[in-house]
Design a binder for these strands. Structure first.
Length: 159
DNA sequence: GCCACCGGTGGC
DNA sequence: GCCACCGGTGGC
């Protein structure tokens, strides 16, 4: 599960799919998320989810490029909740773990060269928020964030 | 033999 | 101190 925080009222809005989430995230600096970007939602409406300790929150980074068509971007929380790992899977199932591996892959698969470059990939990991959250944590956020519930659900917070 | 997963580190 | 990256490996 994903959520974004409205840049105006700071309420949380759920985002249904990774696809939708990635579009918001890819453009969030030049096009900040606000409530009324969601169909029939306004800042006056109650928050769809509250920030609390029932979930482990994970702070995502802004402006991660949208995953190229046919590729998958997986963000995996380690069992000890210490950090997350990012990897991509190519259309043919090749697992890519770094920009170096992406560059090599694109060299070996020139059919992608016209449409895809290494700049379409980012291995930036969301940051796991510690259990003890500073009182001013929410107000200090300048980027968006993502949360992971213990079931693996995710949320994103925007400025 | 593969790969999901984790630990360590170099560079910033 | 953080994090992108990669080597190693245990379990299948």
């Amino acid at each position: 599960m994903y959520a974004v925080q409205c840049g105006k009222c700071f309420k949380w809005r759920k985002i249904q799919t990774q696809e939708e989430f990635e579009v918001i995230r890819a453009n969030v600096t030049k096009d900040p998320f606000v409530c009324n970007k969601k169909f029939k939602v306004k800042c006056d409406d109650p928050a769809e989810i509250e920030y609390d300790s029932s979930r482990t929150w994970v702070l995502d980074k802004p402006d991660v490029p949208k995953t190229p068509l046919g590729f998958h971007r997986d963000v995996i929380l380690r069992k000890d909740f210490s950090k997350m790992d990012v990897h991509y899977t190519s259309p043919e199932g090749k697992r890519l773990r770094s920009l170096v591996e992406v560059a090599t892959f694109l060299e070996e698969n020139p059919k992608y060269k016209d449409s895809i470059s290494v700049e379409d990939f980012s291995f930036t990991t969301p940051k796991v928020v510690p259990e003890t959250v500073p009182k001013d944590f929410v107000s200090k956020l300048s980027a968006e964030k993502k949360i992971v519930k213990h079931s693996g659900k995710m949320f994103l917070k925007s400025p």
